[in-house]
Design a protein around this nucleic acid. Structure first.
Length: 592
DNA sequence: GCCGTCACG
DNA sequence: ACGTACGTGACGGCA
């Protein structure tokens, strides 16, 4: 069998320029303009553009060098391309266009026009993929093996041109294949109305970044350094020797061999020393509590003070996270380098760390979060009467659940009863078993089974929803959100019970988590449009799954508050109201 | 590069 | 007897 080649149907190899014939990249752009940047760095926030590959059809591509040793006058290329790249009537095709938007913006160009992103298309088709790299997609959908550039070697201009060109033609063909599949799978609406408009918004959020009070981080780090020093000394004294507290291996040796404490569970590699184990051991020995304290504080210091400080851009004094639009199986975004979606919030140290996230002079941070969005989505999708009634009456949902579970009136619900009900409510979202609930609540499995049975007797709609979700996954092989986003559930009909049950929990949870993700994405688009339409200068700077964080000039804060509440609560009409809580202050700390 | 652990929703 | 709640990303240790 003949191996298909890129150039089978007469595609031209690349014009290896420095002497660019710009006619090649002038119109017509009936098929859109496909582009691929060649940059010095993977991270677009610091990447310099070495060159840009362009193609206006499936046959031709050119490589335009911007900066290359030995090539003259190449720096003039970007201004010539600017008009075309900024033309909103020309469709732009690319793989991970958000990176392109950011890198080009740093060179003064605003990439505009309908965006056809092959990475996002692949994600909508199969959100379970571990990645959506061009290499893998080309293999799978085009049966073309892309060459990997040899990083240890400086490539010649011709080599750059060839590698970029090869990729460009793959992107063009992928666009055709993937977007055809999107429309065949009824996913085009999700692309056009949700993911595509989100691309420039995420680019903007990353570019704006979040201002950090670096002195505050340093002060907190110093304070923790001192605390950790004294905890460490106590640990060594109790253990009777010095050892690496961070090593689970060495810690296991001290706890379970030297001190003869009882191991309660084990990991693949040895004794478990996780939080559950150590909390239990803390009732019989003084060392485990010290270890837990040490771990908490060293995590805060290492990850959220020292590492975060390193990520502050010297140019902007802000941190510029990367937001991933094609990362999670459910449709949520993720954040990395640094991850700003898991900044501590609980406890004294959580608040103190968030106080280092600040607004620009004359500005405030405004945070708006959906109240109980996943349980509201469950109420809508299940149609459960009691759940719907509770939300319509604007009740505290955990208190309402507790009142039902324990058969008392709502004003007789104790803190403990509410705590149990809260765990049960979250357990429902995750498809928990009696065992899972018993572990979470530290109660017997019989008692846990009673709670669950009790809950389902009171919430027949939820029970039915769970059965429907599982049956639908069995029939279609997918879990679907309210907006048609899908996630393949491969093991739903597995003969392996463990795998099958895991798949069933995914089938129950994904529509809930995924619908909530869809809703907040739509809200981001609406809020951004409304901010623009009203001529405000407030900026959306972060999304944390059910929360949006804005930076806003002090004089705009009241206007923004109204706008955000309106757009977020009105994003979609469900059978229960959506509720948004809003706080603002000079920083992200809890004392707004 | 994987593992255990733990920060968040 | 087994395995046992959904979704992420980052850190330090270790092979």
């Amino acid at each position: 069998m003949k191996i298909p080649s890129l150039f089978d149907d007469g595609a031209e190899a690349f014009r290896k320029v420095p002497e660019v014939d710009y006619n090649h990249i002038k119109g017509p752009f009936d098929e859109g303009l496909c582009l691929l940047l060649n940059t010095t760095d993977h991270n677009p926030h610091r990447a310099e553009i070495l060159g840009i590959g362009l193609s206006r059809n499936q046959q031709q591509a050119v490589y335009v060098p911007i900066r290359h040793q030995g090539a003259e006058n190449v720096a003039d290329a970007l201004p010539i391309l600017k008009q075309t790249l900024q033309d909103p009537s020309i469709k732009k095709i690319g793989h991970d266009l958000k990176s392109h938007i950011i890198a080009l913006k740093r060179h003064g160009i605003e990439l505009r026009g309908p965006l056809r992103d092959t990475m996002i298309a692949s994600y909508l088709l199969d959100s379970n993929r571990s990645n959506h790299h061009l290499e893998g997609l080309s293999e799978e959908y085009l049966q073309i093996t892309l060459r990997i550039p040899d990083k240890s070697r400086n490539l010649s201009l011709e080599e750059h041109a060839e590698l970029i060109g090869e990729r460009l033609l793959c992107i063009r063909r992928l666009e055709e294949v993937l977007f055809k599949r999107l429309s065949d799978s009824a996913l085009e609406g999700l692309y056009n109305n949700l993911e595509e408009p989100l691309i420039p918004i995420l680019a903007e959020m990353e570019m704006v970044g979040v201002k950090i009070d670096s002195q505050r981080l340093k002060d907190l780090s110093k304070e923790l350094e001192e605390q950790l020093g004294s905890i460490k000394a106590r640990i060594y004294s109790i253990a009777g020797e010095r050892f690496n507290i961070n090593s689970t291996q060495q810690l296991g040796h001290i706890l379970f061999e030297k001190l003869h404490l009882k191991p309660t569970k084990k990991t693949k590699t040895g004794y478990s020393t996780d939080i559950d184990t150590l909390s239990q051991l803390a009732t019989v020995h003084e060392l485990p509590a010290e270890i837990l304290n040490y771990r908490t504080l060293s995590k805060l210091k290492n990850t959220y003070l020292d590492a975060l400080a390193e990520m502050i851009s010297p140019q902007t004094g802000r941190v510029h996270t990367t937001l991933h639009q094609a990362a999670t199986a459910t449709g949520r975004l993720s954040s990395s380098d640094p991850n700003l979606q898991n900044i501590p919030i609980r406890g004294d140290w959580g608040s103190r760390i968030r106080e280092a996230f600040v607004a620009e002079e004359g500005c405030l941070l405004l945070s708006s979060d959906y109240s109980q969005i996943e349980l509201r989505v469950l109420a809508h999708m299940s149609g459960d009467e009691r759940l719907i009634e509770a939300f319509r009456a604007d009740k505290d949902i955990h208190t309402a659940t507790a009142a039902l579970l324990f058969k008392v009136s709502e004003d007789h619900v104790s803190r403990e009863m509410r705590r149990v009900a809260k765990v049960v409510n979250f357990g429902i979202l995750y498809g928990m078993s009696p065992y899972g609930l018993s572990e979470a609540l530290k109660i017997g499995t019989t008692e846990a089974a009673e709670y669950i049975g009790n809950y389902f007797n009171l919430h027949r709609g939820v029970k039915d929803y769970i059965e429907r979700a599982i049956q639908s996954a069995r029939d279609t092989g997918f879990a679907y959100t309210l907006f048609g986003r899908r996630r393949a559930i491969g093991d739903i009909n597995s003969t392996n019970k463990t795998l099958r049950q895991q798949a069933e929990r995914i089938a129950v949870n994904t529509p809930i988590q995924g619908t909530a993700a869809d809703l907040i994405k739509i809200a981001m688009i609406r809020v951004n449009s409304a901010i623009k339409a009203q001529g405000l200068t407030s900026r959306l700077i972060l999304q944390i799954h059910d929360e949006l964080l804005f930076e806003t000039p002090c004089q705009e804060v009241e206007t923004l508050k109204g706008l955000v509440k309106r757009e977020m609560e009105g994003v979609e009409t469900l059978s229960v109201p959506l509720k948004v809580d809003i706080h603002h202050g000079p920083n992200w700390g809890g004392a707004h």
